[in-house]
């Protein structure tokens, strides 16, 4: 799905009136004050975050409104290349191809800003005695391919030492549908690019995963860190050294939690140029304390202090 955002500048609009389909075109001028609208296209994981930033920006500068199109991370690079938007929030870094396309069009690379941290969390019911899994166990539970080096698949709760007594029966698995980025990310990072089992319930949203896991003691699922709630328990994962790392703010901030990642904002900024004031205000908001507080309020993890400072020195 792509953006329908109307580009600033000369724009021709097609007006289809009713079923007669009368075609009228007209040109309309542009507005370039300190206020104005700020367009952004990109990740739907970050939708809540970007919209909250927009709300905060609007409270501070009532003339600026943010229009955000949540079409998924994949919709961001084309919009950036096309010039539909200068701001593209993405929940993954740009691929080499996407970067190259931008470079071909503009002759300079897009400015990459890391705006927050996020993680994927393996969750179980809040009363489940299980606390920790190794990467191999995660793979053995969720995949058929065992690409991460597990010996045999784990299907039942009694195959895990912590849950030998309770809960009983098969592990009921919950996850996201094929089209979502979370599905793809879990596949590549937790399953070592292996194949998912077929009997995973594929929910059309992350909060549905949390709801499902929170209701049944023998369920296990994965979801974004921002969806964690007291209904479920986020499991600790073993890192390479064999330490159990809980999905806590500090562990995700320091990149110790194995399934953590950055959230990005890509900006179309020619070298040596300055951004228009509205965009400028938006970006300073993101790296301000208030902006990072919003990151936390939206359920994500704020950037580590040192990192924030380093990025703030950009032009």
């Amino acid at each position: 799905m792509k953006s329908y955002c109307i580009r600033r500048g000369n724009k021709y609009r097609l007006l289809l009136t009713g079923w007669l389909m009368l075609v009228t075109t007209m040109a309309s001028g542009q507005t370039a004050t300190v206020g104005g609208t700020l367009g952004a296209v990109g990740s739907d994981t970050m939708a809540g975050l970007v919209l909250r930033w927009g709300e905060a920006l609007n409270t501070r500068y009532p003339d600026i409104t943010l229009q955000f199109q949540a079409g998924g991370s994949a919709s961001a690079p084309p919009a950036l290349v096309a010039g539909t938007t200068r701001l593209a929030p993405m929940s993954r870094p740009m691929t080499q191809d996407e970067r190259q396309q931008f470079l071909d069009r503009y002759g300079y690379p897009p400015l990459e800003l890391r705006v927050a941290r996020d993680a994927l969390v393996v969750v179980v019911h809040r009363h489940n005695p299980l606390n920790t899994l190794t990467r191999q166990q995660v793979d053995a539970i969720f995949s058929t391919s065992l690409a991460c080096g597990a010996q045999q698949p784990i299907r039942r709760w009694d195959a895990l030492p912590a849950t030998a007594e309770w809960p009983f029966g098969q592990i009921a698995l919950h996850g996201r549908n094929l089209a979502s980025g979370t599905h793809g990310l879990f596949q590549s990072s937790a399953l070592c690019n292996g194949q998912f089992r077929r009997d995973i319930s594929e929910h059309p949203g992350s909060s549905a995963v949390i709801a499902a896991v929170g209701e049944s003691p023998n369920a296990m699922g994965y979801a974004g860190y921002n969806h964690l709630s007291p209904m479920v328990k986020g499991l600790s994962l073993m890192d390479a050294q064999g330490n159990a790392i809980a999905p806590s703010v500090s562990a995700i901030q320091r990149d110790e939690y194995p399934l953590s990642r950055y959230l990005y904002l890509y900006v179309n900024l020619p070298p040596g140029d300055v951004l228009p004031p509205a965009e400028q205000a938006f970006i300073s908001l993101i790296f301000s304390d208030k902006g990072q507080q919003i990151v936390q309020a939206a359920g994500f993890v704020p950037l580590p202090e040192h990192h924030r400072g380093a990025q703030q020195q950009w032009p």
Partner: peptide
């Protein structure tokens, strides 16, 4: 339905239908 693409006759297991797949994918 849980959207699990399974071949199972058990009434207690999930299923996935054409219409739901079309709607989300």
């Amino acid at each position: 339905s849980g959207n699990t693409a399974l071949f199972s006759a058990s009434p207690f297991e999930g299923l996935r239908s054409f219409s739901a797949s079309i709607a989300i994918e």
